[in-house]
Structures are given as C-alpha cells and as structure tokens.
C-alpha cells in the first residue's frame, strides 16, 4: 500500500473506533471466550458446582449418536439446499441472459424472496403443504400420496429444503446474471460460428467461465444453509419429527436454551465456531483470488 496522506490527529481515531470496539468486545469477544471456557467445564445437574474437564465435553459430544445424527442432517440439508437453489437460479439466469425484452421485469419479480425472512419462507411453504389446511397437501393426497411432513421425517426434510432454497434463489440469480454478463458475447458467437451447438457452448465456455461465481455462491449457500436457516427449522419443524431435521445450530439452541445442558451446548458452539472460521478462510483465500481470474 502506498503511503497515504493522513490526518495527524492522535486521539481522534480512538474515539472514532470506540463505539464499534465497545460493542465488539461486550457482545462478541466476551461471550465467545465464555463459550470456549464453558466448553471445558462440567456442571453438576443442579448447577451448584462445576469442574474443569478439559476436552471431555468435546469427546462426549462427538461420540453422542444424537450429535452425529445432527451432523448428518446438516450435511444432507445443506447439500440439497445449495444444489437446488443454485441449479434453479443458474437455469433461470441463463434464460434471462438470452432475452432482452422484459428483462428488468423478470429481475424485479425474481428478487422478492430475498426480502422474505427465512422463518416466514418456511411458514409460507407450510401453509401450502401442511396436512390440515394446505391446498397443495390436499392435492398430493388427492393424487394418492400419503403426505404428512409433521409425522414423516423425509417429507419434513423435503419441505424445509424447498423453503430454504426458494428463499435463496433470488440471491443466486442476481449473482449468476452478473457473472453471465461479464462473459464476452464475442466468445460465444465465435463458438457458434465454429458450429458448436447451444448445449456444447454452455458446458465448454459459459460454465467454466462462471466457475468463480459458482464457487463463491457455493460458499455463501453453505454458510446460509448452516446458519441462516435456523428460523426455518425452528418455525416449521422444531427439529422434528423425531430428530429428522435437527441441524447443528438448532441443536446448540435446543441443548443450551431448552434442555439447559450448558457444557455440551458450549462445546457444540466451539465446534460451530471452527466451522465458520474454516468457511470464512476458504471464502477469503480462494474466492478473492479466483474472482480476478474470472
């Protein structure tokens, strides 16, 4: 970085930083350090005494079948959500890139779900598909499918994945459209003149050139599916039926806040922290670099 022209003030910069730092220390660093500390404590059932147990809570959590189930649920949920949200958005973006007429209108109509809270997205889908009042659930039963996401775990998963991807489509759509616009049209026309069909042009030119966007969205969608979908799970299934839709974040909340198992919950928090750090590192290391390539 070149030496910038700066103001010589000595005290002012600290005052400017003070509000942000104060909030950061009180509401971010202090609680995070508490989570770290508590993850190595075990309290007796009455909360009267606690003792330092090093990594025993982690061992306990990682060997708990319920926790492993929730790891599995989270992976299935995230992969399905990212796959559906990204492929639908890509298809729509490719189509939107072809047309000129009413392009703006399509975009306007496509970005609505971005503004809908995840929890509400979940509820909207629940209105459609819940067994007692949902019109589409009625339709499914009429077709002879025994549909009850409140009792059937896989159906509950399908429902939350649908709601989570529905909400994320608009975000992915905007990024794919921007990515497609950055690809020079001459490149595609040249391939067309050489006789490459539409299908071939897409897979050999467009898709590889979109790789930076796709990779970026993959990271963002994973983070979204891991953390931002708590509202969907909490509002639609409550982790159930059974534990069929209990994701990692929902389990931290449930163990700590509802079941009050503090040590376990803290250990789970720390594991989640490690996951966020890994994802953020990936995002900044690889995504930043690859964007320039694109």
């Amino acid at each position: 970085m070149s030496p910038r022209v700066v103001f010589p003030n000595k005290i002012l910069p600290y005052l400017l930083l003070a509000p942000q730092l104060a909030i950061t220390l009180v509401f971010f660093y202090w609680p995070a350090s508490q989570a770290l500390y508590q993850s190595m404590l075990r309290e007796d059932p009455f909360g009267l005494s606690s003792k330092f147990v090093w990594f025993a809570n982690f061992r306990k959590v990682l060997s708990d079948p319920n926790y492993l189930n929730s790891v599995h649920v989270t992976i299935v949920f995230s992969v399905a959500t990212a796959a559906v949200a990204m492929s639908v958005a890509l298809l729509l973006a490719v189509m939107a890139d072809k047309v000129v007429r009413s392009r703006g209108l399509y975009r306007t109509l496509m970005i609505w779900p971005y503004a809908v809270a995840p929890a509400i997205a979940g509820m909207l889908w629940l209105f459609l598909f819940n067994p007692s009042i949902g019109s589409l659930a009625y339709g499914l039963r009429w077709l002879g499918i025994s549909w009850d996401p409140l009792l059937n775990g896989s159906q509950a998963m399908v429902l939350v994945v649908a709601a989570a991807s529905w909400k994320q489509i608009s975000y992915n759509f905007l990024f794919f459209v921007a990515g497609l616009q950055a690809i020079p049209k001459t490149l595609i026309e040249a391939a067309a003149i050489d006789g490459a069909g539409e299908h071939k042009r897409f897979w050999t030119i467009v898709f590889p050139l979109l790789a930076p966007t796709t990779f970026f969205l993959l990271v963002v969608n994973t983070v979204y599916a891991f953390f931002d979908t708590f509202g969907i799970i909490h509002a639609v299934t409550g982790g159930g039926p059974g534990k069929a839709t209990e994701t990692l974040v929902y389990k931290v909340y449930n163990d700590g806040f509802v079941n009050l198992i503090l040590g376990d919950s803290a250990a789970q928090s720390v594991i989640l922290m490690a996951i966020v750090i890994a994802l953020t590192a990936i995002q900044f290391r690889y995504v930043e670099r690859k964007v320039h390539y694109g």
Binding site: L17, T24, A32, Q34, A35, F227, A266, T280
Partner: peptide, 30 residues
C-alpha cells in the same frame, strides 16, 4: 482506519475483521 495513523491500527482492524467469524449462532448462551 484509513485516514489516520495510530498505534494499534492493524490490531484493531483485525479485531473487527475476526467478528465475521463469530455469528450469534455460535455463541448463543453466553
């Protein structure tokens, strides 16, 4: 951070940057 030079500038920058990795979801109870 951009228009002043002061002691601890980069330290504070990193302090703020790291909060990216501490969403509410990972520190609910504390």
């Amino acid at each position: 951070i951009v228009f002043f030079r002061f002691r601890g500038r980069m330290f504070f920058f990193w302090l703020i940057f790291i909060t990216l990795m501490l969403p509410v979801e990972v520190r609910i109870l504390p």
